[in-house]
Computed example of a mutant assay.
Amino acid sequence: MNNTLTKLYALSLSTLFWGSVALPTMAQEALRTLTVTGRGTEAVTATLAQVTLGVEVRGRTAQEVQQEVARKANAVLVVLRGREVSQLQTTGLSLTPDYQFSNNQRLLVGYIGRNTVSFRLPSDRVGALLDAAVQAGATTIDSISFTAPETTLAAAQRTALQRATQDAQSQAQAVLSALNLQPRQVVSIQINQATPPPSPVRFAAPAMADSTPVVAGELEVAATVTLQISY
C-alpha cells in the first residue's frame, strides 16, 4: 500500500513538473505572430444624384410671404413629379421675421419664408431638371451630391475587401521571406470597410441661359483588412 501511494505521488510530481515546463513554451510560440494591414479600393461611377433645392421669398407681411412660398413651391413640385424623381420629401419649412438695425434699434421690415425639398434622380438628368426647377420658381440649389445604387456599392466593397486581403498577404509574405521564415496560419482577421460619402457639389442657382452642366465623376470604395499570421 505504501509503495503504491509513493508511485502515485511521484507520478503526480512528474506531471506537474513537465506541465510547468510546457506552458512557457506554448506561450512563447503564441507570441510568434506578424500583424499586417492591407488596403484595397474599387472605383464606381456615380450614377445617382441627391439634390436639395428650395424657394425663398421676402415680403412685408407673413401672410403674403407664406402664400408666395406655397405658390412657388407647388410649381416646383409639379416639375419634380413630372420628371419622376425618387425619394421626394420636404426637408425644411420656415417663416421668420426679417429685421434691420438702425441707430442701435431693431426694426421689423418684413418676413422671410423658405421651403426646401430633397430628391434623387439619375445624374445625367440633373442639369436639365435644375433648369426647369429654377424656371418654375426655385431660388436656391442648396446641395448636390453623387452616389451609386446600393447593389453597385456592395459589389465594389466585396472587390475592395478581396484586394485588401491580397495586399495584406503580399506584405506578410515579403516580410517573412526576407527573414527566411514561413507563414503557418492566420490567427485573426479584422475587417474595416466604409461606404464612400456622397461626392458633394454646392452652389447657388444662377440665372441660366444654357443648360446647366453637371459632371458626376467617380466614387472610391475603400476597405482595409488586418491579418495576424503565425510563423
Rank of each mutant, 00 (worst) to 15 (best):
S123H: 03
Q87F: 07
T152Y: 00
S86G: 09
F119Y: 10
L153N: 03
L107G: 03
L121I: 06
V36S: 02
F17V: 01
L121C: 01
R125M: 08
A128S: 09
E150K: 07
K72M: 05
A75W: 03
V76R: 04
V134M: 02
E64F: 01
L153C: 01
A46S: 10
A27D: 08
E29D: 10
Q135A: 12
S143T: 11
L48S: 03
L53K: 12
V51L: 15
L108S: 07
R83T: 04
A133L: 01
V109L: 15
G127Q: 02
T90E: 12
A148K: 10
Q105P: 01
A148I: 05
E42F: 13
S123Q: 05
K72D: 11
Q87E: 13
R71H: 06
G19P: 00
N104I: 00
D142T: 13
R120S: 15
L80G: 08
T91W: 10
Q66T: 07
V65W: 00
S145A: 10
G19D: 01
V36T: 13
A30F: 14
R114N: 06
A46Y: 08
L77K: 00
S94N: 12
A132D: 05
L23H: 10
D124Y: 06
D124E: 12
L88G: 07
T45C: 03
M26I: 15
G82P: 11
G59T: 00
R120H: 12
E84R: 11
R71V: 02
L23K: 06
L121E: 02
P97Y: 00
S118G: 15
L153W: 10
G19L: 08
G127Y: 12
A73M: 05
R58W: 04
G82D: 15
G127H: 04
R39N: 01
G40S: 13
T35I: 09
A62P: 05
A62I: 07
R125E: 04
G38V: 06
A46E: 05
P122K: 12
R71F: 00
S143L: 09
T33A: 01
N115S: 15
A30G: 14
T151N: 07
G38M: 03
A70K: 08
R60K: 05
R39F: 08
A148P: 09
L31S: 11
S86M: 13
K72Y: 06
V55Q: 04
G38R: 02
G110C: 11
E150D: 13
V51D: 03
Q67W: 03
T37S: 12
D98L: 06
T33L: 03
A133T: 13
A138L: 13
Q100G: 07
A22N: 04
V51W: 00
A22W: 13
A148D: 07
R71G: 02
G59H: 03
T25V: 14
D124W: 04
G19S: 09
L88F: 10
Q87V: 00
G92Q: 13
R32M: 14
L53M: 15
A22I: 13
L93K: 07
Y99W: 11
F119Q: 06
S143M: 09
